[in-house]
Each structure stands twice: as structure tokens, then as C-alpha cells.
Design a binder for these strands. Sequence first.
DNA 1: GAGGCTAATGTCAGCGACTGACAATTGACA
DNA 2: TGTCAATTGTCAGTCGCTGACATTAGCCTC
Lengths: 219, 219
Amino acid sequence: MATSTPQTAPGGGLRERKKQRTRDALIRAALELFTEQGYEETTVDEIAEAVDVSQRTYFRYFANKEDVAFAVQEMVEARFLDELTARPASEDPLTALRSAVLVAWDDIGSAIASVVPVELHMRTYRMIESTPTLVASHLRRSSELEERIAGLIARREGLDVDADPRPRVLVAAFCGVMRVAGKVWGEGPDCSVESIRELTQSYLDHIQPAIGGDWRSAR
Amino acid sequence: MATSTPQTAPGGGLRERKKQRTRDALIRAALELFTEQGYEETTVDEIAEAVDVSQRTYFRYFANKEDVAFAVQEMVEARFLDELTARPASEDPLTALRSAVLVAWDDIGSAIASVVPVELHMRTYRMIESTPTLVASHLRRSSELEERIAGLIARREGLDVDADPRPRVLVAAFCGVMRVAGKVWGEGPDCSVESIRELTQSYLDHIQPAIGGDWRSAR
DNA sequence: GAGGCTAATGTCAGCGACTGACAATTGACA
DNA sequence: TGTCAATTGTCAGTCGCTGACATTAGCCTC
């Protein structure tokens, strides 16, 4: 009703808000097209056209065709890193990682709903896992994230990442397991947030015993 | 000396041999160009021209620009898988993986020297690690390899990969650690085969204690 | 509220990766 | 030698992506 109450958060001027809106629109349009007709089958022109901007404009918002597919993931990751930093120093590293992940999954919904429906995000996740090109960049992004996580873990424990291999080793193992969980979930039938959260949790519970050794006895 | 002793392995006709030669030439040319002027700075046309074939022909040998960079890796991986299958059933999974890797590294030289000089392969490895696009596909390829490894491990232990998460979990952790080792090696000064072999070994030695828990005491 | 400043957008031309279609070449084999 | 099929070259076209330049549209000052 008011002539122009600029909602809650949005920074300042109309310019900012407009930019934000085009960006969000591009994301929504892209994800919808990707999930409906497939990533490879969608051209950047289509995405741009759906939002009624030029192709050139798309490329001013996203460096390439892939990036738009990960825009939401990026928010989730930021959430995870925040949570990890906030974990009490008393927790051992593996527990801290585990807790941070689970907390992040818990309030993922509210965080991203402002940009895209959660359900669309879940479908996107699956679509990424089944598109070779996107799997590749997803993995690369994850490995960059890993590096940052290793840094955080090292700091928690008061270690030097380059001198002591344990932070990187632990994080590598941890993230590897996370990835497998995500992949298995993507192939399964249930695409709810709850199901991936539980699968994650169960897989993390297996990491220690799996590495521990005698599989035949401790079944 | 002989008029045409077709070496040891090479299949049959001249046609086959010719194809093999063009393929090898393409690989060598590509790796040389990539390592000298950079991946992004090299065009497929340049590679084709260096071997004196058309661009179209290049794409009949390799599906895309990236694939040629991994042609040698592929041989190494095959070697690793063979070795893993051959490990005695008495070894526990982690030990089998560890041994297979180390054996593979040991006779890597003789295996690939027929296609490219080992030194070029090492430089390629580094070049891959420092080229975002290639890092991405490297990771994707690795994850496909992981799946196959998990299958092998599961068979060794008489398990079902889909029912029991432990094979995938272990392999994910293992491969994660391998990747970190490769990455760290790529950033270091020593690019010899020996150095990566030793780094690998040392990192693998850390995997159990790192996950085990109390980092502060067991230093 | 007119006018200048600058950020955002559109347009256009062009490169490089990749593909399908068709023609030309060249081993293979009777 | 001649036929058949595999390999290669040529050409045209699509799509991702970029630089350069013109155009539009918030923003800010007077």
C-alpha cells in the first residue's frame, strides 16, 4: 500500500533492488528450464529471453552457463561455514563438522525460500548430479570449499594446514563421504529435505567404523 | 631391421597402426602445447595442425578438448584397477587400496613411456591441477573411478554396494586423501615420480589416526 | 526539476568448441 | 584389379562467451 516501502533487508536505491530482482529472476528461470528440459538442452538465450533481458546481460550476472545452477548452493555453503565457525572448541573436529552440516540442513528451507521454492532447489540438486558437466563443476566447487574448511579446522585445533596433514586429510575424508551421501540420495526415490538429512547423518555415522578395520566382525 | 615386424602388442593391419600413431601424436602434441603455453591458450586447431590433420579428425579421436589431457591418466588408472583386483583377499580393504596405489606408481614409468616421456606426463599432471576447467573434469573422472573401486572392494568383502554403505564410504575417504596428496604435490617444488609416491604413502599413513579422534595427545 | 554523472543494458561483430552431412581418400580383401 | 568399408577432409552452422561501443535509466546536485 505504501508508495514505496523497500521491504525488510534490501539495501538502498531502486537500482540495487532492480538488480537483485533480475538476478533472482534469472536464477528461477534458469533452474526451471534446466530441470524441465535438461541443462544441455537449454540455451543461455532461452534463459535471457524468459527474463526478457539480452544474452549479454545474463553474462554480466553470471560468468558462464554453469554458475547460475549453483547460485543457491552458494548460500547453503555460506550457512554451513558460519555454523562451523560457531561450533564450540570443545567438540572434536569430526563432531564439529557433523553438527555444522546437520544444522545447515535444518534451516536451509527458510534461508533459500526467498529466492526459489525449496522443491525447485531439490530438483536442481538432482539435475546437477545427473548432468556430467555440472557434476564436474560441482566437484571443483566442493574442492575449493574443502580447502576453506580445512583452514577452519586447522585454526580450531591450533595447527598449520601446510605443516600438519591431518586437517586436510580429515576434511577430505569427510567431504568424500558427504558427496557419496548426496549422490546416493540423488539416485533414490525420496527427494525431500528430510531424507537427505537422514542419509547424511547415517553415512557420517559409518565413517569411523568403516575406516577402523575388521568389517567382518563388526557387522 | 625387419621389413615390418609390428612390434609386440599392436593388433593387425596397417590401418590399426596408423590410427594408433595419429592418436599418440595427437596426445603428445596436445600435452606439449598445453604445458608450454597453457590449456586455455591452446586451440584445438593448433593441436590438429601440429599433427597435420583436420580439426574434425581430432574430434573423431577425442570427444572434446579436455579428454586428450587425460589420455595417459586413463592408462594409469587401468593399471591401478588391475592391481587392486589382484590383491590377496587376506588384506583388509584399506591395505589393499594402499598397496595397489603404490604398486601402480612403481611401474608407471615403463607403462606410459611408450606414448609420452614420463617427464611430460608429470608436467601435465601439474598443469591439470592448475587449470580450473581441467580440475573439474579431473574430479569428475575420479568420482567415476571411485564408483568402480567401491564395486571391487564390495566384491572382495562379499558385500552389496547399495545395501552396505561402508565400501563407498571407505573409498570416498581414501580417494579424498589421494586427491589432497596429488594436489599438495602439484604445488610443491619436487616433480619427480618418487616424491609423489612418498607423499602419497605418508598421507595414507595419516588417514586412520586423523579420523581416530584425539589429535592433541597423539601428535 | 533540469542537467550532468555513472551504472546497467542492448547491439553487434567475432573467436573457439563442437556437430552433422557429404564428398574424397585409402586400407582391406576377394 | 575392383569393390567395399573405414578414415579423413571440407563446409556450414549452433552455442558459449567476450570486447567495444552506443543507449538507457537511476542518482545526485544545484
